[in-house]
Computed example of a mutant assay.
Amino acid sequence: MIPTLETERLRLRMQTMDDWPAYARLMMSERAAFMEGPHTMAEAWGLFCHDLAQWPLLGCGGLMFDDRETGECLGQVGINHGPLFPEHELGWMVYPGAEGKGYAFEAASALRDWAYGERGLKTLVSHIDPENHRSRKLAERLGAELELDPDRPGPEVLVYRHKI
Score class of each variant (00 low, 15 high):
Ile2Met: 06
Ile2Tyr: 01
Thr4Ala: 12
Thr4Arg: 03
Thr7Lys: 02
Arg9Lys: 03
Arg11Ala: 09
Arg13Cys: 08
Met14Leu: 09
Gln15Thr: 13
Thr16Met: 06
Met17Trp: 03
Asp19Gln: 08
Asp19Lys: 05
Trp20Ser: 11
Pro21Lys: 09
Ala24Pro: 07
Met27Leu: 15
Ser29Arg: 11
Ala32Met: 09
Ala33Pro: 10
Ala33Ile: 10
Ala33Phe: 04
Phe34Arg: 04
Met41Asn: 13
Glu43Phe: 09
Glu43Gly: 15
Trp45Thr: 09
Leu47Gly: 15
Phe48Ala: 13
Phe48Trp: 05
Cys49Leu: 13
His50Cys: 13
His50Ala: 14
Asp51Gln: 09
Ala53Tyr: 08
Trp55Tyr: 04
Trp55Cys: 01
Pro56Asn: 00
Pro56Tyr: 07
Pro56Ser: 02
Leu57Glu: 10
Leu58Ile: 07
Leu58Arg: 13
Gly61Ala: 01
Gly61Leu: 00
Leu63Tyr: 02
Met64Ser: 15
Met64Lys: 10
Phe65Leu: 07
Asp66Pro: 00
Arg68Asn: 00
Cys73Val: 12
Leu74Ser: 06
Leu74Tyr: 00
Gln76Pro: 06
Val77Pro: 01
Val77Asp: 04
His81Leu: 12
Pro83Ile: 15
Phe85His: 15
His88Glu: 13
Leu90Asn: 02
Leu90Gly: 03
Val94Cys: 08
Tyr95Pro: 07
Gly97Ala: 10
Ala98Arg: 12
Ala98Val: 10
Glu99Phe: 07
Glu99Arg: 05
Gly100Phe: 11
Gly102Val: 03
Arg112Ile: 00
Trp114Ser: 07
Trp114Gln: 04
Trp114Leu: 05
Gly117Met: 09
Arg119Cys: 05
Leu121Ala: 00
Lys122Glu: 15
Thr123Trp: 13
Val125Ile: 12
Ile128Pro: 06
Asp129Trp: 09
Pro130Met: 14
Pro130Arg: 12
Pro130Glu: 13
Glu131Val: 10
Asn132Pro: 10
Lys137Asp: 07
Leu138Val: 01
Glu140Leu: 00
Arg141Lys: 03
Leu142Trp: 01
Gly143Arg: 00
Gly143Gln: 02
Gly143His: 01
Glu145Ala: 02
Leu146Thr: 08
Glu147Phe: 14
Asp149Thr: 11
Gly154Ile: 13
Val157His: 14
Val157Ser: 10
Val159Ile: 15
Val159Trp: 13
Val159Tyr: 13
Arg161Cys: 01
Arg161Asp: 06
His162Pro: 03
Ile164Val: 09
